[in-house]
Amino acid sequence: MNELDAKDVLNRYMDGKDNVKPDVLEASFSDDGIVTFEINTPNISFPDEIVGNKRISEVMFGDFHELFGQVKSYYLDQNFSQLNECKVVDQHWLVSMREKASGNTRIGSGTYNWLFEQQNQTWVIKRVHIVIDHMVSFEENSGWLDRLQAELSDYPWAEKPTMMGLISSQPELSNILEYLKR
């Protein structure tokens, strides 16, 4: 596996997850793919484990897109040092979205740990462990979320210093800002 292969798989995953494309998300995983979660914040929930690409697609689209809109997630680093083992580890991410019921902005952050495999001549996700360290909901009517997402034009990739600069204007995000400084 090379860096271009890894980026292709990661781009497909994010496109399927964020842009309401369950077929793309399903095809991003191996048939027996596994998603596990470690959730360190009380205001979001997922099952501990989801097995199988069809089930992964169902769960990640079930209630999630009914509850949240304007979802954009970003990879904040490109550490591909373990691709010889078909892994990407401790990849920081940040998600931005709007709560449909309240209109609040929601920002979350954590890490991904990926394991890839080749299936039918295509690289797919065999396993991903998603750590959700922070999830903050706050009211903002200034169009900040729209500006944030417009500023990050290389979706789904963003440089961590750029992201930190963009979120630093929101005092509600101070814990996420400190987290990203590590």
Rank of each mutant, 00 (worst) to 15 (best):
G62K: 05
F61E: 06
H92N: 13
F116A: 00
F46H: 08
S102P: 10
M1Y: 07
A150D: 14
L166K: 10
V9C: 04
R147F: 01
G69M: 04
M1V: 08
S45W: 10
G103I: 03
N53C: 05
V95W: 11
E99R: 05
M163N: 03
M14V: 06
L148W: 11
E58C: 10
S109V: 04
M14K: 09
H65E: 05
K160W: 01
I132A: 02
D32N: 14
R147I: 11
H129D: 03
I56G: 02
Y13F: 14
L10D: 04
V24F: 08
F46P: 00
S137E: 12
E159M: 12
E159W: 12
F37D: 01
V128I: 15
H129N: 13
D5T: 07
W114S: 03
S174T: 14
K126R: 15
D5M: 11
Y75M: 06
Q149E: 08
A158E: 05
F68P: 00
F138R: 11
E151A: 13
I176E: 04
H65R: 07
E178K: 14
I176Q: 01
E140Q: 06
D146I: 14
C86A: 14
K181Q: 12
S30K: 01
D63N: 10
G16A: 03
S137N: 13
I39W: 07
I56T: 03
E99D: 05
I167R: 02
Q78F: 00
N53H: 09
E178A: 11
S168T: 12
I130Y: 00
K7V: 13
E85R: 09
D133M: 14
H134S: 03
S142N: 14
N40Q: 15
Y75V: 04
G110C: 00
V128K: 01
M60F: 07
S102W: 13
I56K: 00
L166D: 11
R182W: 04
E117V: 09
L148A: 10
L173G: 07
Y75K: 06
G143F: 08
L173R: 04
E117H: 12
T36A: 00
P42A: 04
W123Y: 15
V9G: 05
G110V: 08
G103C: 11
Q118H: 06
N84V: 12
V89I: 14
A101F: 08
D18Y: 01
M60H: 07
D90H: 03
V88E: 10
N141S: 13
I167A: 11
Y74S: 02
Q118T: 15
K72F: 13
V20F: 00
G108F: 04
F138I: 11
S137L: 03
Y155K: 03
W93S: 03
H134A: 06
A150K: 08
G69E: 12
Y13A: 02
Q149S: 07
L4D: 11
E140W: 01
E99G: 00
S28A: 09
T41R: 01
S30F: 02
P22W: 09
W114C: 06
P161W: 11
V59Q: 02
R147L: 15
D31G: 12
T162A: 08
V131C: 05
G143T: 10
L94I: 15
S81C: 12
S169C: 14
I130S: 01
T111K: 09
G108C: 00
S109N: 02
R182L: 11
R98Q: 10
K87G: 06
G52M: 00
S28N: 09
R55K: 12
E151W: 10
P47V: 07
Y179K: 15
T36I: 00
L94A: 09
A150T: 13
Q70E: 15
